[in-house]
Amino acid sequence: MKKSTCRGCGAPIVWIKTTAGKSMPCDAEPVLYKAREGAAGKIVTPNGEVLSCDLDVGPDEATGIGYISHFVTCPQAEQFRRKGAPKDGSHGN
């Protein structure tokens, strides 16, 4: 996992290679999540899977630790988004 700084907002980010082989910028701080099919939240696992999940869960509910796509949290995300890319940060995965 490569660490860097967002060129748009200056936040620390990590780059995670997805299972599709693309590098995705994610917020540097890992978060707890509960995997749930069809959930609105998305998480990127350290091994590159993009999962639907519930965020803001406690340690007793969590099914893992992952990273939130920086496209979701960056106030400057639109300047980096490719045409046709989903706004939820999932990149269609």
Rank of each mutant, 00 (worst) to 15 (best):
Y33F: 13
T5L: 04
I65N: 11
C26Y: 06
T19N: 13
N47K: 15
A11G: 01
E78D: 15
I16P: 05
G10K: 10
A62H: 01
I16C: 05
I65F: 06
M1C: 14
I68H: 03
G89C: 05
I13Q: 13
A62Q: 01
P25Q: 14
I68G: 06
G41E: 07
D88C: 08
P75C: 04
T63H: 00
P30I: 02
T45N: 05
F80S: 07
T73N: 14
G89H: 04
E29F: 05
A35C: 07
N93C: 14
K87C: 01
W15A: 12
I43E: 00
S23Y: 12
N93K: 10
T45K: 03
D54I: 07
V72D: 01
P30V: 03
A20W: 03
D56L: 10
A28V: 08
G10T: 09
V31C: 07
V31N: 02
G58A: 11
V31I: 11
A77C: 04
C6Q: 09
D56V: 00
G92M: 09
C53S: 06
I43S: 05
Q79T: 04
S23G: 14
I13T: 11
C6A: 11
P30F: 03
A62W: 00
A28S: 14
R82L: 11
C9F: 02
E37S: 11
P30Y: 02
R82S: 09
T63G: 01
K87E: 08
A28I: 05
R81D: 01
D88T: 02
V44N: 10
S90G: 06
P75H: 08
A62P: 00
P30W: 03
I68F: 02
I65K: 15
N47W: 08
H70Y: 02
C9D: 04
Y33K: 06
R81I: 03
C26G: 09
Y33C: 06
P46I: 00
N93G: 12
M24D: 12
F71A: 15
K3G: 10
T63Q: 01
I65M: 13
P30N: 07
T5N: 03
I13C: 09
A39S: 11
A39M: 05
A77H: 08
T19G: 13
A39T: 03
A77M: 08
L55F: 01
P25L: 07
S69N: 08
G38T: 03
P25A: 15
M1D: 13
I43N: 04
S4K: 14
M1Q: 14
D54L: 13
K3P: 08
H91N: 11
G64I: 00
K83I: 00
A11N: 09
R82P: 01
D56C: 08
G48Y: 03
H91C: 10
M24T: 14
C53A: 14
V72T: 06
P12I: 00
E29D: 15
G41W: 06
K17P: 01
G21D: 03
C53L: 03
V14W: 05
G92D: 07
I13G: 10
K3D: 12
V31M: 04
H91L: 14
P75R: 09
G92V: 06
I13A: 11
A40K: 15
R36V: 10
P25D: 10
G48E: 07
I65L: 14
G10P: 08
S90P: 00
T19I: 13
A28T: 06
E49S: 09
A85F: 04
N47F: 06
K42Y: 06
P75W: 02
M24F: 15
